[in-house]
């Protein structure tokens, strides 16, 4: 995992360090130009997304039923959050999910992209196939994977049976439901992130590979010396997107297990939905959202910092 975001010196920068020379002389001009590029998107983003998000932050300090005026309750929602078993279970489950989902999807997506980034007959077909799980109806995905994981008749357990392994109850077992859900999610999303890696691979200059080949390197050395550093920005993008995706996962799990059995696959997003929209406790739901947001923000900053530090070494 770490290897993928490690790069030797001289690779393209992710958080490009400003060059002091240019910055001093053209500071205000650059700022003007920079903002002019960002504004069209930023205006829409602020008006449509950021304002409600700020409102959500404010609501986390209130009790609000979604209709009558919110009333200030200070840190009450947050105190409740850390004493609420269901929310803490959701937090643990979400972290569990992320720890399994992020690296596995990353590897699967990268593997697919490398495998399918070549000139060969039928490559368009295989790429389409890899992308298919993402566009297949969620309901169909949930139904078929539940069938595959069926403890009695499911092919997964039949397969395990050939090796004398008595398969677990998968989605009907509190221990195995989460692994089952992770496998399904990885399967579903790998084609999506493959697309990002495929785009990233196109940016690596052909000449670098040719030069490396002239130097008599083998395929693995070329992968380490050319592909990994060249893919760095993409890998970083995928890593952050996967983290974000993992922490807000909802749809697939909800359709597949509804958070069960028991609370074995209850995740934060479902808890937010449940307490907010279903139970009508928007203040408390907002507090859970703030927790989720802070968690991902910290993780993102750590990844940025880590990434930037690698670069300067």
């Amino acid at each position: 995992m770490t290897d993928l975001i490690t790069a030797p010196p001289g690779s393209p920068s992710v958080l490009a360090r400003p060059k002091p020379r240019r910055r001093r002389s053209h500071g205000w001009r650059n700022a003007l130009i920079g903002w002019s590029f960002i504004l069209p998107n930023l205006i829409g983003f602020v008006a449509i997304t950021l304002v409600p998000v700020i409102a959500m932050f404010a609501l986390s300090f209130t009790s609000w039923d979604g209709y009558n005026p919110p009333s200030w309750v200070g840190l009450k929602n947050f105190r409740r959050l850390f004493q609420d078993d269901a929310s803490m279970t959701a937090l643990r489950n979400t972290v569990y999910y992320a720890v399994g989902y992020v690296p596995l999807t990353m590897l699967a997506a990268l593997g697919l992209a490398l495998l399918l980034n070549r000139k060969m007959r039928g490559v368009a077909f295989f790429r389409a196939v890899a992308f298919f799980p993402y566009i297949t109806s969620l309901v169909a995905v949930a139904i078929v994977w539940n069938m595959l994981f069926n403890p009695q008749f499911g092919p997964v357990n039949q397969f395990l049976g050939w090796f004398g392994v008595h398969g677990p109850g998968w989605t009907t077992s509190t221990t195995w439901a989460m692994p089952a859900v992770i496998v399904t999610s990885v399967w579903r999303d790998m084609g999506y992130y493959m697309i990002l890696f495929l785009a990233g691979l196109q940016a690596i200059p052909k000449e670098l590979y040719e030069a490396a080949e002239v130097d008599g390197t083998n395929a693995w050395q070329r992968f380490r010396a050319v592909t990994v550093p060249g893919l760095r920005p993409t890998t970083f993008l995928v890593l952050i997107l996967l983290t974000v995706q993992a922490f807000k996962v909802f749809d697939l799990i909800f359709v597949m297990t509804q958070g069960g059995p028991g609370e074995a696959t209850l995740v934060l997003a479902q808890q937010i939905y449940q307490t907010g929209i279903v139970d009508g406790e928007y203040g408390y739901a907002s507090a859970i959202s703030v927790l989720l947001f802070s968690l991902v923000l910290v993780l993102t900053l750590v990844q940025f910092w880590f990434n930037g530090r690698r670069e300067r070494k």
Binding site: S63, W64, D65, N68, S71, W72, V73, G74, K76, F254, Q258, G259, Q274, V278, D279, G280, E281, G283, Y284
Partner: peptide, 17 residues
Amino acid sequence: NDSLANSHMDRSTLNVE
């Protein structure tokens, strides 16, 4: 549908300080 239909019970507002 199932989980919506089964879990929509009423929640009143929290106590107001």
